[in-house]
Simulated assay, not measured.
Amino acid sequence: MHGADIQLKEIESALLAEELTFHYQPKVSFLTGEIIGCEALLRWLNPDGTVILPDDFLPQAESSGFITEITAVMLPKLIEDIEALRAVKSDIQVAFNISALDLRSPYLVKMLRSFIGGRRIDPGNIQIEITETAVVDASERVRTGLLDLVALGIELVMDDYGTGYSSLEMLSRMPFSALKLDQGVVRRMTEDAKNTHIVRSSLYLARELSIKTVAEGVETAAIYAFLLASGCNEAQGFWIGEAASRDDFVALCKQRRRWPASSYGLLYNAWVNHISYRQKVLDLVHTLMLTKPGEWGQLPKMELSHSPARCRLGQWYRDASHGGGSPDYMRLEGPHRLMHAAGESLVRAAQSNPEPDVVIKAIKAFLEYSDVVDAEVSNIVERWMEKSLRQSLRPDDE
């Protein structure tokens, strides 16, 4: 059966006959190479053995409003499956797609609050995925529903990022914890450099907003490797694994299989964060010098922390799992702290509006410390890549 041929009463009968079930597609962490979670994908298992995919029946269910009935019936089944998955991996994180209509109903939040309150699952065991188009021009009830989910400790993921017309607006207005790069954009990176630019820009934006990134549609080892090197957090796609029944997914988790992994992505993110901090400081100082103190209250808000502890670079080199205690990393500690202190002093100098020579001196000190940090990170990257290349062979060298 195809979407145009399916009637609403057939969907209703299928739900009543328990022909709808979930299949689970694995998501892998680029940091560990291990399965970190999965996406729950609805499947209609026909009695004749055929499998009907969601694109063939969910649009009809959504347009008729029957989607809320499907969610009400299938969510408890999802929780049962998550309980089974937790027996294998207690921190499993299962992504579940919902409709804006689900958020207009009070039952979704009530059911999840009950499941979490009854300790059947932890809030971290479930993610809610919703497309930006589902919340564009949404009612206050929908927005309240999303905030209620966040209050329960559930992460929100913007699904199909890059396909709508107001992604940036939604990211700024709603408390998303992650964005999921649209599989079409990911796949087309091999065809058009513009799509590659979209992916890289999206990864940069997510880093600036301190949210995770998930790439779906990863269908080749080459695309996986590119995303790993670019600092993406998680991957999902046929190259990693197709959606499978709960039992088959449990079996996959038990295999403890590992995919390629590297901490280079974290270092890359941290380095970009350091460069971004430097640019923000200089941009702010330049802006302050071009405006009068009475106008400063009208300047755009900017997230600018001078604390080394809040800088991703500082967090990275202090993490014992990434070389804590090694001279290579500890050499970064002093210059990094001095750079942030110099950045704070520079902003204060610009705000106090002293003689230009004072600000110029502060700029020079800030950039000198920043250059030292850059040089140390460059040395770490050089040594890391040399070690990595010597330990592994490219496929054509085997």
Rank of each mutant, 00 (worst) to 15 (best):
A222M: 07
G231V: 05
D247S: 12
E219F: 08
R188A: 14
E219K: 11
I198F: 10
T287E: 15
L288K: 12
S177V: 00
K212E: 10
D159M: 01
G184R: 11
G164S: 12
E169W: 02
G153C: 03
D160W: 04
V250T: 05
Q236E: 01
M174G: 00
H197K: 14
L288I: 11
A151P: 00
R173H: 11
T163N: 09
D192I: 08
V285R: 11
V214Y: 05
A251Q: 00
G164K: 03
G217C: 07
E208H: 10
A178F: 02
M174Q: 08
E219R: 12
A215E: 00
Q236V: 04
L228Q: 03
E155F: 04
Y165M: 06
L156N: 01
A251G: 03
Y277Q: 10
L171H: 09
D159F: 05
L171C: 05
S202K: 10
L209M: 15
L227T: 04
L266I: 02
I211T: 08
E216V: 03
L179K: 11
L168H: 08
Y224M: 06
R207N: 13
A244M: 10
I275C: 10
A215L: 09
Y165E: 04
I198A: 08
K254G: 04
V199P: 11
S172V: 01
W271R: 15
A244R: 13
L266K: 13
M158T: 03
K194W: 09
E169L: 08
G162K: 10
A225G: 07
